[in-house]
Nucleic acid binder design. Structure first.
Lengths: 198, 198
DNA sequence: ACAAGTCCATACGCACAAGTATGGAACGGC
DNA sequence: GCCGTTCCATACTTGTGCGTATGGACTTGT
């Protein structure tokens, strides 16, 4: 076989690292410390190597950030929104989407971190694309739920900003909320932001 | 007179600086560059002095940040929410509040910047206090508008997160919106987040 | 086994911002 | 007009992170 015997599984265990390992570590760092957390030497320490390793895989720090963002955008699309599409009932689809925000999925945590770094030239276009897709997603759902074209677009914008704001303030900034309180809150959001199921 | 002849007007013009001048410059820097923008030497350049001046007025960078945050919290309370309280009709009061977000008042821009720095130990308690006050503000308004206790609290939370999310995404991340579009959006928000005026 | 390529460690240079030390200019009271 | 206080400039030191240079170790094909 011309292909190496082991390489597809991912981080495998220790020994040599791949570019993908660095990208994953970068995303973990973003989730934990924000964009500033993605620094070469700290990441190297975290991975048990030195930056000599890093600069073999990537020409610069920005290159890692770019690669990590592309990876996140791709995985987020697949893991978060992919499973939502086949849900036929738009009401159930929206409920499922909102419900997922509560479970602090890594992808959501990274999204929240990226929202705080919209001034960065590499982050902005990613968030713009993601936001547009999510707005479209919401607009379609609201359209299917019975709202007219205009109302659906407006309601989607409202829901999306509420979604982003909640993500931003849930971890800190607002009094922590219990599981039951969150359920009641979700119920209220659904009642408020969804038209009655005629 | 034992008091100096000039000192209350503010930055006056050039010549000597006061601690308040540094605090104001710090808030400007936060609005423009975020929390990272509040750095001693850049601020000194901006003010036309060197950091020798700074370290006379403040013992450390954190001290300036603390003072600037206190100043913002105080001014924000007075300038933004103060004029809203006397508005008797809760519906008009809420409309006025939401309407102000559009005009990018400095205080709102700073608030948006601070929302991006909730991980900072000096910023967090400020935002917690401000958020609590605004939640209370909204809850009272919704209560007066006819919602029961529980619904008012939930609706306040929804409105506040939408408020924060809009602030976060309005300047970048979502397609820019025209003035008329914003008016239509505001109308939709009011219809959706306010109970019908029985 | 040997050479070529792959991956990483070590040791630099550089930029930039925080904080310190110290001396000097400008302003106030008397 | 003198003097002490107030305010600021200059010149350090220290820390940290990006990027480079270079050599060594490990892997792989033949």
């Amino acid at each position: 076989m011309s292909v190496p015997s082991e390489k597809a599984v991912g981080s495998e265990n220790r020994s040599r690292l791949s570019a993908a390992d660095w990208e994953r570590a970068a995303l973990d760092a973003i989730a934990e410390y924000g964009l500033a957390g993605i620094a070469v030497e700290p990441l190297a320490r975290r991975l048990g190597v030195t930056k000599g390793s890093f600069y073999w895989h990537f020409p610069t720090r920005e290159a890692l950030l770019k690669a990590a963002l592309e990876r996140w955008e791709r995985e987020d699309e697949e893991e978060i929104f992919g499973p939502l599409v086949p849900i036929a009932d738009p009401r159930a689809r929206l409920r499922e989407l909102f419900g997922r925000i509560a479970h602090e999925l890594p992808s959501h945590v990274i999204f929240a971190a990226l929202l705080k770094a919209l001034d960065h030239p590499l982050v902005l276009p990613v968030i713009e694309r993601v936001s547009q897709r999510r707005l479209d997603f919401l607009t379609v759902a609201y359209r299917q739920a019975g709202l007219d074209e205009v109302a659906a677009a407006l309601r989607a914008r409202l829901a999306y900003t509420a979604y982003a704001g909640f993500l931003q303030l849930a971890r800190a900034g607002l009094p922590r909320i219990s599981h039951e309180e969150f359920e009641r809150y979700m119920e209220h959001v659904m009642e408020t932001l969804l038209p009655a199921p005629d």
